[in-house]
């Protein structure tokens, strides 16, 4: 499984590497921290500024238009940096991915278009709504075009009572609700994008159909496999016995670290096993040939086949156990042939 995933990792690194080597890493990380700070500050300040009744700090900051504009600018800048960066990364990541379904492909296309759009559209919308919100709280309606021009800024405007609806604040409330909804939709879009990206990457990294992992302890798995193979060998059906022997060999191989893959044919598994010098090639080949005959033909199978399968399994499991697990216990189980049978059968019955 690891060697399946490996070629993908370096490719990502390779794609990112030119960026790192082109710019100075220190400047780059500094820029990143600055971006995060700007975004955070923008969010905090803008959140306070956009509250018409005084903001987070309790001061009526929102009443000063220049400051409010600055906060909105900050927020817009932060959003542009954060979402813009994410959109660029997203596009770079998914450009070469082939989705598992056509639906996922379309979703990916849509996300690749919507994310940059959101990065630009939200700041623009913020400026639009910001102007309206600015004029909103002071003027009751549009009928009065410039209500604040001749009035000096009121230093002690008492915040409106919660229960008492002010005509201007109702408009700003609507705008806030709209803005909140827009923000929520965009957040959901970003989350969907992230989830989609992760899923696509997981799908790509997953090997064809991973088979369940072998039992945790190698020695246990090995001993269990040999015991099971032997129990099958003592049965009356020679064909099932040979097949079970091979299955035991598969399990032993899996326990010793050779992964089993669903698309593998017996020979492919054998070839991969032979690359491992812990596997005895002669016996592995013999057992595989016996298995193929038992599994895919209707030839009559007799005691000679079973005894050959038993010999091969003994030799294989013995060598695997020797080389995989130094502790003496599994070696005796695997190598001590008749003892293992007796113990296994005795324990079984």
């Amino acid at each position: 499984m690891n060697d399946e995933a490996q070629p993908i990792g370096p490719r990502h690194d390779g794609r990112d590497a030119p960026d790192d080597s082109a710019g100075e890493p220190a400047r780059r990380s500094g820029g990143r921290i600055a971006g995060v700070l700007v975004t955070l500050a923008g969010l905090l300040l803008a959140a306070s500024a956009l509250r018409p009744d005084g903001g987070l700090l309790g001061a009526p900051l929102a009443k000063v238009p220049v400051q409010a504009l600055g906060f909105v600018l900050l927020l817009a800048l932060g959003w542009l940096i954060a979402v813009g960066r994410f959109a660029l990364r997203f596009r770079a990541e998914v450009r070469h991915l082939v989705g598992p379904t056509p639906w996922a492909e379309r979703l990916r296309e849509a996300a690749a278009v919507l994310l940059p759009g959101a990065a630009v559209a939200v700041p623009v919308l913020m400026f639009l709504f910001h102007n309206r919100a600015d004029t909103g709280p002071d003027g009751p309606h549009r009928a009065r075009p410039l209500p604040d021009l001749d009035l000096p800024p009121l230093p002690t405007v008492s915040p409106p009572e919660p229960g008492e609806p002010v005509p201007g604040s109702s408009l700003s409330g609507v705008i806030q609700v709209l803005f909140g909804a827009l923000l929520a939709v965009l957040v959901i879009a970003v989350v969907v994008g992230v989830v989609l990206l992760l899923r696509l990457r997981i799908v790509r990294r997953r090997p064809p159909t991973p088979l369940p992992a072998a039992p945790a302890r190698t020695e246990d798995a090995l001993a269990a496999a040999v015991v099971t193979g032997r129990r099958a060998l003592s049965g009356a059906d020679a064909r099932a016995a040979v097949i079970a022997c091979y299955a035991a060999m598969e399990t032993s191989l899996a326990a010793s670290g050779l992964s089993l893959r669903a698309p593998d044919s017996p020979t492919e598994l054998l070839e991969r096993a032979m690359a491992d010098d812990r596997v005895d090639p002669v016996h592995a080949r013999a057992l595989t040939a016996l298995f193929r005959e038992a599994r895919y033909s209707t030839h009559p199978m007799d005691e000679s086949h079973v005894s050959r399968a038993r010999t091969a399994l003994d030799a294989l499991a013995g060598r695997l156990a020797e080389q995989t697990a130094p502790p003496p216990e599994p070696v005796t189980v695997a190598v001590g042939a008749s003892g293992a049978v007796d113990r296994a059968d005795g324990g079984h019955r």
């Binding site: 088979l211 992992a213 269990a224």
Partner: peptide, 14 residues
């Protein structure tokens, strides 16, 4: 399932 429950089930079937 192929390898992991295979050898365990086999004797029963046999």
């Amino acid at each position: 399932s192929r390898p992991e429950s295979g050898p365990v089930d086999a004797p029963g079937a046999a």
